[in-house]
Design a protein around this nucleic acid. Structure first.
Lengths: 341, 341
DNA sequence: CTGAAAGCGCTTACAG
DNA sequence: CTGAAAGCGCTTACAG
């Protein structure tokens, strides 16, 4: 069956296409009787306006692109849920793109989103290269980058004070009496990772604690990477009594590896995660972690983006929003003293 | 800056728009020299083709809509990840819609997707009403429904054998010696829920076990709902020694409630979940659960949809794919005997 | 209060 | 091997 168009409606109602358009969009007064005839015709024919035609004409698609590493990671799932929510409230659909932190894939997604003429893009964890971001910036499409810092001329940024957050995590472990504190990082040199590590190092330094390079091990932000990293750390002499994992998934992996090695959390080893994903409170032991203000991040990202789309021409200054993360103490960490059994 | 169009490229290369189109789409032979001039011009001008215009002309958007209750639920997060993957491989983008099982919201999403002229829709847990599905079916857009059964004239269906899965879960508990086996269901009368409960009941019946109506309590498929339901169940006399929760999130909630009540899992109460989300293996105790073949579900859904979009006219028969779920025994369930302390 | 017509950026039958 | 022109379904200045 061919699509029902405004032309069909106009014919059925005995009016012009112009009039149909105006009653649909309430964009000028139409005589009541005429309007009713048009509405009846639309209903009778099951008319559905075509956003595609509208987009072509108006240059606006009411769609935003969301590029993130992987929605199956709970942190990103929660973020994308919030972004979709805020977008929906303002009439925007979101196209989901899982980049897997793969530059090639990300590049293709950027092309697709540009071709589809999304009105804006929210970029999460864009990998180390700024190439795609530069292209986007050059193309003039509004972009906001979340969860990572980039040069401000390229995009708006909403991010965490990662250095401070890393400091808080390490400081917590130090205050519990730990001295051998390992760290499981992300896969790359991305700024959030680096800054969290920097904060961790600052705390140790301040406390006069040495950290041999082997106490910092790379993970991949996934459960399995946390397990592997923890196994490496267990070979260290002396073995760490506390671990700071840069996200909760790796913290869970670390706990799992510790258990397999016959160690208890927190009695033998304390573990701090990062993100405070929904299940962090529910695992056993409930995870001490750094809580990211997910809703706030999503809200800033969506609102800054939409705002930018509307004032497009008045090319306003980009902004950098820095939010604070909070230490949530649960039961995966404990006082060092109690280690003596 | 105004968009660079084929017209600009054609002008710059000194050829017609027709030719530009053909070199872009490789849709007819173009003299090498001409082709190169066009390619240079595209590159020099930073030309990006407009999918919007292309879609309007071709009647195809290369986009599919995904309607699901909530991506922040790990099960749906994993499903949507897989669907996005399979779609991407075949050149489709996906628009994400969180319905929250809210009919009103779902209705609006359906309208949006129809207006945006997505090429097809994957529907998950569509609520109890078939209204939206009927509208979609009438509009002629390809639809596949996942995770739920619907009349076959409305859509393709890919689903689990939920009755059998429920039976397996209950049978496992029975075989461990349990006799007081409670069940925490979903919020509604949706077929997957009902069938799982039916399977559970069949197992109990077969074993000659009575199940007073109070042993079946409603949850909401979320952690908090599992907690509340479990609290209700703890007031029962005699209290259940085993619980079957219709998804893992509620199982986690139940475990959390049991702990708060000073009970141990599985020593005092055994718990079986459903879905086998990624973290099910990592919580403590690792969750015994029914594993859904997520990847297979996503693959069938995506492939059936894309297939249907391509043979559109040859309105082929709809299909119903029924997959089997597997019982994964971990440590949240144990032999009843050991309950004597 | 209403309509005819141009144009958004493409694809493609038709013609040469 | 290449081009002029129609048309996809809308919106909107212009005219009456």
């Amino acid at each position: 069956m061919p699509r029902v168009t405004m032309k069909d409606v106009a014919f059925a109602a005995g009016v012009s296409i112009t009039t149909v358009s105006h009653v649909i969009n309430k964009t000028r007064r139409v005589r009541q009787a005429t309007r009713e005839r048009v509405e009846e015709a639309m209903h009778a024919l099951g008319y559905q306006p075509s956003s595609v035609a509208r987009s072509l004409r108006m240059g606006v698609t009411k769609t935003i692109g969301l590029i993130l590493p992987d929605v199956s990671n709970p942190f990103f799932a929660e973020i994308s849920r919030q972004i979709e929510d805020f977008g929906y409230q303002q009439g925007y659909s979101v196209i989901l793109c899982n980049s897997d932190n793969n530059l090639q894939k990300q590049h293709e997604y950027v092309n697709t989103l540009l071709a589809k003429q999304v009105d804006g893009i929210i970029f999460i964890s864009a990998g180390e290269s700024l190439e795609d971001l530069s292209r986007l910036s050059a193309s003039g499409i509004p972009v906001v980058v979340a969860d990572r810092d980039v040069p401000l001329h390229l995009a708006d940024v909403v991010m965490l004070d990662n250095e401070k957050a890393g400091y808080k995590a390490a400081q917590h472990l130090i205050s519990l009496g730990h001295r051998h504190i390992a760290c499981i990082t992300g896969p790359s040199h991305l700024s959030p990772s680096m800054l969290r590590v920097a904060g961790y190092q600052r705390a140790l330094q301040q406390a006069g604690i040495k950290y041999p390079p082997e106490t910092i091990v790379r993970g991949d932000f996934r459960i399995s990477g946390g397990e592997q990293a923890m196994r490496k750390l267990l070979n260290l002499m002396p073995a760490p009594t506390a671990v700071f994992a840069l996200n909760d998934m790796m913290a869970l992996g670390a706990i799992s590896a510790l258990r397999s090695a016959g160690l208890r959390v927190p009695q033998d080893v304390s573990v701090v995660g990062f993100d405070d994903i929904m299940i962090a409170a529910l695992v056993d032991p409930p995870l001490t972690t750094i809580s990211q203000p997910i809703k706030e991040i999503a809200e800033w990202a969506t609102n800054m983006l939409i705002e930018k789309m509307h004032v497009r021409d008045a090319d306003c200054e980009n902004r950098r929003i820095v939010l604070d993360a909070e230490l949530i103490v649960r039961q995966s960490t404990q006082q060092m003293d109690t280690h003596h059994e």
